[in-house]
Design a binder for these strands. Structure first.
Length: 907
RNA sequence: GGGCAGUUAGCUCAACGGUUAGAGCGUUCGCCUCACACGCGAAAGGUUGGGGGUUCGAAUCCCUCACUGCCCACCA
């Protein structure tokens, strides 16, 4: 074995073996498989460290369940990522000097398909390299034929139920992406703008002042609103305003949504370009003027301002208002503006004909499932309430996007007649005036899973598919169903749906998780996953988001190259705290790598001991009759591993792999390496040493099996090195998770007691050695009273001598003495240092100890004489306190005795 | 504006009503000791954010204040 784990050489060997182990051995029992689907990464580029988390945490769970003999499946795949992907590809084209607007729809789609193929391959390869156990024969892509079919089927079903409709609504329009966005796809930025106070003249004399941050929208005003209780405006009721610049006559209306306290108390109402104004406009039946177009330029109704970009129009309108004395004042004002969550450009609220989905029936199902059955179960639990609250306030979902990359809406329009269908146009539409609305025939739109041959109403074959594509999250919301072939009742769908657990970052709880639940419930009657684990977001060591511009991005591939995939996996899992964001720096992976090295080296030591055994045939299995040959140290370690196995299982099952890993880390390094292996070394001369070595090997085997889900590469590589020496016969990943060792509890207790005394003694001596400034080669002489009472024989004392670099001697009356007690004062230790020694310091030490003990004794006496305590506390707690008091008294007696001796000898 | 989470050692976090609050990293000191210097040993470091309450007993439960982060809403 090399003295370092060469991960770069070792890693590639294991990948092909792991790809075969999905679902594990053929299921013999009836236990339901543990099923997860991957949160499909966007095909925008390569995987970042957040993706690594999304995949490594589930992989640990999948591997864990496989090792417990439960069939386990994880389905990989990728997401076409609509706007996000189109944005990235547009940028890429631009960097190559290609303007995407000069490409035809088909040409651009071809570029995107090509891009998707490349990144898909790259992403799947990265997943494989991270060691993820997935069934790559079931790999899906949200735009492949299976998923697309599910999308069309779901759409048609919802359409037929009347839940999907087309209509003119105020929506979020990204001018750069040239598409509508849903409410969840906008983000809010604080901007330092200005608040402008405009003077609106009243018909018949007088004026009213309105405040606005967007003066250019005044061209679209159709009313001025005031609060009905605002006494300043009681007299204005029923009067009209003549809108400056364009001289439109608009009413003054009253609406309770207007806050009297803000600005001037009167608000210009622009139903075409503001969400609140749109709502007010609906209620008051106000006309709508669309003065900003989808291209971000002022439209024809904007009159002389037509064709100007919004910012330029604003400036010109301000100039004109000022010149005509309509601008009273302006003041600095911080407010929020919506931006596109993908391209970060300003979102314009505007009226547009879009496809929407009524969410109420779906929402009700999700609320009922959550309230009645607690489904899905959230980790951490407080997310459940957030989810419920969000559902309660859910609005209709804007489904259509005016981009190219995505699922084309499965609706066809009949072009046979140019006759307009009057009910498609509300009276306000006639005033939109931009001609942007499609002219549809009188035939009903045809929703169909397959391209229809002809119009069912008129028989015409002049059909045109709706040009829009679906929100990328529509296909995502079907993912846990579509990957298994839904709507067909495939064997996979029957066996694996609903899935067991969904793991992803909390940032997409509403965008994705909630929608999957709603769609799953509505379309299949079942919540698509029993549990949801929402992990925190990865941030840098200062808590900032990782971004390319800040230069604080951690590329998982770089960590893998520098420290190994296991270090990446270990470091990420250890950094996870349920419900909290994860702060990472490149240094976060140092101690992870160190652990792997430690594991490697400890294994190397054990292998070396195995190979030294003669004859060449080492013990294959630890002899069962432990009581005949095992040492208390062995029983102690067995007790430790039993506790570890128990905690490990418990934490894994309650979805806290970080706690599980912490427990393994501490037991392996702190108990197994630091103490047990060191003790074993000191037992080499024992004639049963061969048995000890095989026990040590089997204990290592337990650790390897438990650690395998987290650090598969190094553990598998170790089992390979051990070859026939290790009891692990199959591929480690399929080796059964260890059960606690079946050893009588009194033996375990004896072992624990032995270890407790030994460790305390050794640490006391080591501490004193450091205190005295002794060199590690200097032996320190020790006398130990009452040793035999604790059953310590010569082998035990040899172990202590070896660990503490000391030598046991007969008591000496003449030598310098340092006294200590251990085991709560039951054992007295006398040390004879062969060096000068500061008696004054020792005296001070005892005095301090005594003071501390006095305090403890007083406290404990008070506590134990408190009838409130003795009457109410559980008996074992009282017993524990009694024991503590006993120990303190014993120690105090010894220490005052030593102190007296010290004072006598120094005087 | 509404809501959620958090505040414990220099840093990241444990401790899930039991009385002397623990790890890892970092720091300091001593060691290349035959698995490992990616290591070993030793040590320093805390009024558990402030205040009040419940309890025999509070980091833990309740109230309150302060601060931090996030989500939702969007006052023009």
């Amino acid at each position: 074995m090399e003295n370092r784990f060469s991960f770069l050489e070792a890693e590639p060997q294991w990948l092909s073996q792991w790809q075969k182990i999905h679902l594990g051995a053929p299921a013999n029992g009836t236990e339901a498989p543990f099923v997860m689907v991957i949160p499909p990464p966007n095909i925008t580029g390569s995987l970042h460290v957040g993706h690594a988390l999304d995949n490594i945490l589930p992989d640990c769970l999948i591997r864990y369940h496989l090792s417990r003999g439960r069939p386990a499946l994880r389905v990989p795949g990728t997401d076409h990522a609509g706007i996000a992907a189109q944005f990235v590809v547009e940028k890429h084209l631009k960097s190559q000097g290609v303007d995407r607007n000069r490409l035809s729809r088909d040409e651009f789609e071809a570029v995107l398909k090509n891009w998707a193929e490349t990144t898909k391959t790259n992403i799947l390869e990265q997943l494989v390299k991270m060691g993820c156990v997935m069934d790559f024969t079931r790999t899906r892509f949200t735009m492949d034929s299976i998923c697309s079919r599910a999308v069309r089927h779901a759409f048609k079903h919802l359409f037929d139920k009347g839940l999907i409709y087309q209509g003119d609504r105020l929506i979020n329009w990204c001018v750069r992406c040239h598409s509508a966005l849903s409410d969840l796809e906008t983000e809010w930025n604080s901007v330092k703008g200005r608040l402008y106070y405009l003077r609106y003249p009243l018909e018949g004399g007088g004026e009213i002042v309105v405040a606005t941050t967007r003066p250019e929208t005044m061209l679209g005003d159709s009313a001025v609103a005031v609060n009905p209780n605002d006494s300043r405006y009681f007299d204005f009721k029923g009067r009209f305003v003549i809108l400056p610049l364009i001289n439109r006559r608009i009413p003054i209306i009253q609406d309770h949504r207007i806050e009297a306290g803000f600005g001037a108390g009167a608000v210009k109402v622009t139903p075409g370009h503001d969400p609140l104004d749109w709502a007010i406009g609906q209620d008051h039946q106000l006309p709508i003027y669309k003065i900003i177009g989808e291209d971000g330029l002022m439209t024809a109704p904007a009159g002389v301002y037509q064709g100007l970009a919004v910012a330029k129009a604003r400036q010109k309108i301000l100039d004109d208002l000022k010149q005509q004395n309509f601008l009273i004042k302006e003041e600095p004002y911080a407010h929020n503006t919506a931006v596109c969550y993908r391209c970060a450009q300003v979102v314009e609220p505007l009226i547009s004909k879009q496809w929407f989905m009524k969410m109420d029936p779906l929402r009700d199902l999700a609320l009922k499932a959550y309230q009645d059955n607690g489904e899905p179960k959230f980790h951490p639990p407080h997310w459940g309430e957030l989810y419920r609250h969000w559902l309660q306030n859910l609005k209709d979902w804007c489904l259509s996007r005016q981009i190219i990359w995505g699922h084309r809406i499965p609706v066809w329009h009949c072009k046979s007649s140019s006759k307009l269908k009057p009910e498609n146009f509300s009276k306000s539409n006639s005033e939109l005036g931009t001609g942007n609305l499609e002219q549809f025939s009188s035939c009903h739109p045809i929703c169909s899973e397959e391209t229809p041959a002809s119009c069912p109403s008129c028989g015409s074959t002049a059909l045109e598919q709706d040009p829009d594509v679906l929100d990328t999250w529509f296909s995502s919301s079907l993912w846990p169903m579509s990957v298994f072939g839904w709507p067909d009742q495939t064997p996979d769908f029957k066996r694996f749906y609903p899935t067991s657990l969904m793991v992803n970052g909390y940032d997409i709880t509403y965008l994705w998780v909630a929608r999957m639940v709603m769609m799953g419930l509505y379309l299949t009657g079942r919540v698509p996953f029993k549990e949801v684990y929402l992990h925190g977001l990865v941030r840098d060591s200062q808590g900032r988001k990782m971004s390319k511009s800040l230069g604080n991005v951690i590329d998982p591939a770089v960590i893998q190259n520098e420290r190994g995939t296991d270090a990446l996996r270990f470091g990420l899992i250890m950094a996870m705290q349920p419900g909290r964001d994860i702060y990472l720096s490149k240094d976060s992976f140092v101690s992870a790598q160190n652990f792997n090295t430690k594991l490697w080296n400890a294994s190397r030591f054990i292998l070396q001991e195995l190979s030294k055994l003669t004859p060449a045939a080492p013990v294959k299995e630890t002899p069962a009759n432990l009581t005949h040959w095992a040492h208390p140290a062995d029983f102690w370690m067995i007790g430790e591993i039993n506790k570890t196995i128990q905690t490990f299982n418990q934490e894994m099952l309650r979805l806290d792999p970080a706690a599980a890993l912490r427990c393994l880390y501490g037991a392996f390094w702190g108990s197994f390496c630091d103490w047990y292996l060191e003790i074993v070394k000191l037992r080499r001369l024992n004639d049963r040493y061969g048995n000890t070595v095989s026990l040590m090997r089997d204990l290592l085997g337990d650790f390897l099996v438990c650690l395998q889900p987290f650090i598969p590469y190094v553990t598998h590589e170790i089992t390979k090195e051990f070859n026939s020496y290790l009891a692990v016969k199959t591929l480690l990943a399929l080796h059964p998770s260890p059960a606690p060792w079946n050893v009588k509890s009194d033996l375990l207790q004896q072992g624990a007691r032995w270890a407790s005394i030994t460790k305390e003694m050794v640490m006391e001596i080591r501490s004193l050695r450091a205190d005295l400034g002794l060199s590690p080669t200097d032996e320190i002489q020790v006398h130990w009273q009452n040793a035999s009472n604790h059953g310590f024989n010569s082998q035990d004392t040899a172990i202590i001598q070896g660990l503490a670099k000391c030598r046991f001697v007969e008591p000496s009356l003449s030598a310098v003495k340092i006294r200590r007690v251990i085991d709560s004062g039951n054992i007295e230790l006398t040390l004879y240092p062969a060096t000068t020694w500061d008696a004054a310091r020792e005296t001070a030490r005892f005095r301090a100890e005594l003071e501390e003990l006095d305090r403890s004794v007083n406290r404990l006496k008070r506590l134990l004489s408190n009838t409130g305590f003795t009457g109410k506390a559980p008996p074992d707690v009282i017993e524990q306190e009694r024991g503590r008091l006993q120990g303190c008294l014993q120690r105090r007696e010894k220490f005052s005795d030593y102190l007296k001796q010290l004072e006598q000898s120094s005087s």
